[in-house]
Amino acid sequence: MAFDYDKYLRPGKLPHIWCPGCGHGIAMKGLIRAIDACGLEKNNTAIVSGIGCASRLPGYVDFNTLHTAHGRAAAFATGVKMAKPEMNVIVVGGDGDGTAIGGNHFIHACRRNIDMTYVIFNNSIYGMTGGQFSPCTPTGAKASTTVYGNPDPTFDISKLAIGAGATFVARTTAFHATQIDKLIAEGIKHKGMAVIEVLDDCPTTYGRRNKFRSVVDMMKRLKDIAVPVAAASKMTAEQLEGKVLTGVLYKEEKPEYTQQYAKVIAKAQGA
């Protein structure tokens, strides 16, 4: 075996609920490998999620886990981190949970630069509730609530995170399985808000409506649209049409929120 996942999984919980070919499983394996590579202790790690397909992940992994209200994962995670600043806090969730219903919590967690790792599983749709369009559904794509094609422009989660103040932002896809764990591991080690966007596929509610013949077609599309940041700098705007950049998109060092808050406490106590 290349890797033994069993030591991080709760016994008896598999098979998971995700549909055949759902990229969430691939991303979850990447997350587990990243946690292992960083050597995080189970008792000192909290995995927090909201509601949705991706948010079922904490049920399968053997850490301190929180499955919270829709979109509120970042808020609960902030609470955990403030109460226990030494704890490693990882948030997982989908694009709808993170950027629509929880958009406000997401941008303010980014703004504060609180030390957590937010892994967004972007499958471009609300999968669990029946395929409604999300802010990440591509313009023109079909969803159960946009049967004539989605008229909305699309959110770029990574740009949103950078704009809101996150200090580590990276993007990868479910096809690039080994890159997932490398980027998440880098995000975990980063002191501050790390956002890792994993583009994946929803064959059941997105692929079916958008003329993807199979799960494999969706995986090949992820391979085709991804362009590493270094390669993109040598490409023209025309060549980059319809592509997404992958790799570390942004990184900087800034004061971290729990450390700043500790100074406030010290000041208030007259230190």
Binding site: M1, A2, F3, G21
Partner: peptide, 10 residues
């Protein structure tokens, strides 16, 4: 093993 979303291959 790497790409199986279901932990089904070793």
């Amino acid at each position: 093993e790497l790409r199986c979303p279901d932990f089904a291959i070793k």
